[in-house]
């Protein structure tokens, strides 16, 4: 080892030691101090009941499959509609001006309203028109609400991706005689979409969580199932179970998105 390596190794050992001691101190404080709070026994009994955890876990996991299902069929719809809106907002031809306005208004509205409000308004409002079964299903209108909201976000992400592609790429395509449509489809979009994959991954993680909001309009998915158990067992542990199940999915997904983001940044620097 040369001098620099020796120095750096010593620095690393020192940093590791400091990090270890401080982490240990914080954990110890939490473990020792939280139980000292006057309400801790009651909180422990109603949120961290091992028996209830084991009892409700299988059903909640099964209910979570409904969330996964809604998520799975929403994603392609969101991506498709998001792309359409992004392209509509970029339309330059005068005849397409209404489309541009529509895209802008659409994005403003659905990004401006809280998701849960959109779900209430569409989920209760549209079936209230007296639609026959199965067209009054909360699954349909809940999905519609999610798709409308998230496609607005995805459209904005895609648009930023499209605008981040340097004008020289477009010029090169135009100079080869390619038309506007071919330029967008074969030159701009493939690069733009690749560039915004990490940002969209984060969107999809948020979507996975927001699917639980559909519980407010009917579907007995994991959040509602946890609520049922809470009433039945007079215990909040099912909510903790639901949180654990969500984390098991969202933590790996966010880590993966971060990994993609970092790789992207490294590749561009």
């Amino acid at each position: 080892m040369n001098r620099r390596q020796t120095y750096e190794a010593a620095q690393r050992r020192r940093s590791l030691a400091v990090a270890g001691v401080s982490t240990f101190a914080v954990l110890a404080a939490i473990i020792l101090l939280v139980p000292l709070a006057p309400g801790w026994p009651a909180v422990k009994a109603s949120f961290f009941d091992g028996g209830v955890f084991v009892q409700t876990f299988p059903t909640l996991l099964r209910a979570f499959l409904i969330d996964v299902m809604i998520f799975a069929w929403s994603v392609p719809l969101i991506l498709g509609l998001g792309l359409a809106i992004a392209l509509a907002r970029g339309a330059r031809a005068p005849a397409l001006f209404p489309l541009r306005i529509f895209g802008a208004v659409y994005v403003d509205i659905f990004r401006g309203v809280p998701v849960v409000l959109t779900i209430y308004l569409i989920g209760f409002g549209v079936p209230g028109l007296g639609l026959p079964r199965p067209w009054n299903s909360p699954y349909i209108w809940g999905t519609v609400a999610l798709v409308l909201t998230y496609s607005a976000y995805i459209a904005e992400v895609l648009r930023s991706g499209i605008e981040s592609i340097h004008a020289s790429q477009r010029n090169a395509a135009i100079c080869l005689g390619l038309g506007e449509r071919d330029t967008m489809r074969y030159v701009i979009l493939p690069q733009a979409i690749r560039r915004v994959v990490p940002a969209n991954m984060n969107m999809l993680v948020a979507l996975q969580k927001d699917v639980a909001l559909l519980s407010f309009i009917g579907p007995v998915e994991i959040l509602r199932q946890a609520g049922i158990y809470k009433s039945l067992l007079a215990n909040f542990t099912p909510y903790v179970v639901a949180a654990v199940i969500f984390l098991a999915v969202t933590v790996p997904a966010t880590r993966y998105a971060d990994h993609l983001l970092n790789r992207d940044r490294d590749a561009r620097s």
Partner: peptide, 8 residues
């Protein structure tokens, strides 16, 4: 090289 001949 092939894109423009193909599309145009």
């Amino acid at each position: 090289v092939l894109l423009a001949p193909r599309r145009v």
